Each structure stands twice: as structure tokens, then as C-alpha cells.
Simulated assay, not measured.
Amino acid sequence: MFTGIVEELGTVAAIEDQGDALRLTVRATTALDGTRLGDSISVNGCCLTVAAIEGDTWTADLMQETLDRTSLKGATPGDRVNLERAMTPEQRLGGHIVQGHVDGVGVVVRRDPSEHWDVVEVSLPAELARYVVPKGSITVDGVSLTVVGVGPDSFTVSLIPETLARTTLGTRAPGDRVNLETDVIARHVEKLLTPYLPGAPA
């Protein structure tokens, strides 16, 4: 489990294409502090298991499901990535409850910079739209954000200077793909209530 508060911008050091899988090696500092084999690290919002540690790099295996459902399939050496270690019980929940299980991929539609923040519009896959509401939480590339507005096929967020400086969202341009995770609480509520809605099977 994560909070969506990015700890560090890491760098993709190497990628080994294994056909139906990838071995991803990331260079990091903070994310490796206290990290052991088997620990979880969020990379652009995708929970990955540490399979190897060597010096200032760590490696994870990405199976086909991960490649199909996230933007990590297009990662290349030199890319900057948002990193967050799994939270511990004594941590403050500074963002919101994030599982690191990417629901889908959106595309940056536009960004409107201002003096103190940027407003960014991101496309929203139709199957995720019902979980996104104004003032609700959404995770974009592993960053916990508050939704500003929601359209039929997109949503907007405002990025403060701290987010612009410390995450990849500061450089995402129109056309860039981003990982999206909707609020897990909304999905559980829907699952529990669906059988009791009018027209539901007995």
C-alpha cells in the first residue's frame, strides 16, 4: 500500500526485453534506503517487487499483465520515474490510499501553465469515469491528486510547484501516456451496493 506522495525521481538504468516480460532496472537513492529483496516500490504508480539490488540500482520483473495495463511498456533507459516505497504503519497518510494497481492509462490532453500552478487535463478511459468525481482523489503516475473537474472523457487536476518540481508530472506534455488508479474505496462501495440496486438479479 502507498500514499501517492512521491519520495524520489529515479532513472531507468536498463531494460531487458524477455518477450512476454521485461526486467526493469532503476537507479535510485532514497527508495533504496532500508529496502530489501521482496519489498514493494511504486514506479509511476505501478507496484513492483524488488528482485535484485546492486549498488544504487534495483531490478523488478514486469509480467505481461503489467505491460498490457500500464505505460511502463514504453519505458526506455534514461526515463525519469516517480518512486515511492510501500508505507509503514507509523507513517502519516499524506495522500490517500493507493494500491499501486493501475486501472488504466490516460493521455495528457493539455496543460495550462500559470504563475504558481499548472492545470493539466488527462483523458479518462470510459470504464473508469464513474469512479472520478470533483474533489475526489485520483492517482496519476503514482502521484496522489485532487480532481478539479470531470468531463465526459477527461478530468483536470491542478499541480502545485512542489508537484511540478518533484515528480514527472512537471514535464509531462500533451500526448504523453500516464498511469491512472482510481479511488479503491469507490470501487468497493460499487461492488457491495450493486446487488441491491433496482434491476439487479436476485
Rank of each mutant, 00 (worst) to 15 (best):
3 T>N: 04
5 I>R: 09
7 E>T: 06
9 L>E: 13
9 L>K: 12
10 G>D: 12
10 G>V: 08
15 I>G: 08
16 E>L: 11
16 E>N: 13
17 D>R: 14
19 G>I: 01
19 G>S: 07
19 G>R: 03
21 A>I: 11
21 A>Y: 05
25 T>E: 10
28 A>V: 06
29 T>I: 04
31 A>H: 06
34 G>L: 05
35 T>K: 00
35 T>Y: 03
35 T>A: 11
39 D>T: 10
40 S>A: 11
40 S>Y: 07
42 S>W: 01
44 N>Y: 06
44 N>H: 08
45 G>M: 02
46 C>A: 09
47 C>V: 11
48 L>T: 15
48 L>E: 06
49 T>G: 01
50 V>G: 03
51 A>L: 08
56 D>K: 07
57 T>S: 04
57 T>W: 01
58 W>S: 09
59 T>H: 03
62 L>I: 15
62 L>C: 13
63 M>S: 13
64 Q>W: 14
65 E>C: 06
66 T>Y: 01
71 S>V: 03
71 S>W: 10
71 S>Q: 14
73 K>E: 13
73 K>C: 13
75 A>C: 12
76 T>D: 05
77 P>T: 11
77 P>F: 13
80 R>H: 14
84 E>M: 03
86 A>D: 12
86 A>P: 08
88 T>G: 11
89 P>T: 06
91 Q>M: 14
92 R>F: 13
96 H>T: 03
96 H>W: 08
97 I>C: 09
97 I>P: 04
99 Q>I: 00
101 H>I: 00
103 D>V: 03
107 V>M: 10
107 V>F: 12
108 V>G: 13
109 V>C: 10
110 R>K: 14
110 R>I: 01
113 P>F: 05
114 S>P: 05
114 S>D: 11
115 E>P: 09
122 V>M: 02
123 S>G: 12
127 E>F: 10
128 L>V: 01
129 A>I: 13
129 A>V: 15
130 R>Y: 09
130 R>F: 09
132 V>G: 00
132 V>P: 00
133 V>S: 00
135 K>E: 04
136 G>P: 00
140 V>S: 04
140 V>G: 01
144 S>H: 06
147 V>H: 00
149 G>T: 07
156 T>Q: 00
159 L>K: 03
159 L>P: 14
161 P>K: 10
163 T>P: 13
163 T>Q: 06
164 L>H: 04
165 A>C: 04
166 R>K: 13
166 R>N: 13
168 T>W: 08
169 L>F: 07
171 T>V: 15
171 T>N: 11
171 T>A: 14
171 T>H: 15
173 A>Y: 08
174 P>L: 00
178 V>I: 07
181 E>H: 03
182 T>P: 00
184 V>H: 07
186 A>R: 07
186 A>P: 00
187 R>K: 15
189 V>S: 04
190 E>I: 03
190 E>D: 14
191 K>H: 14
195 P>Q: 04
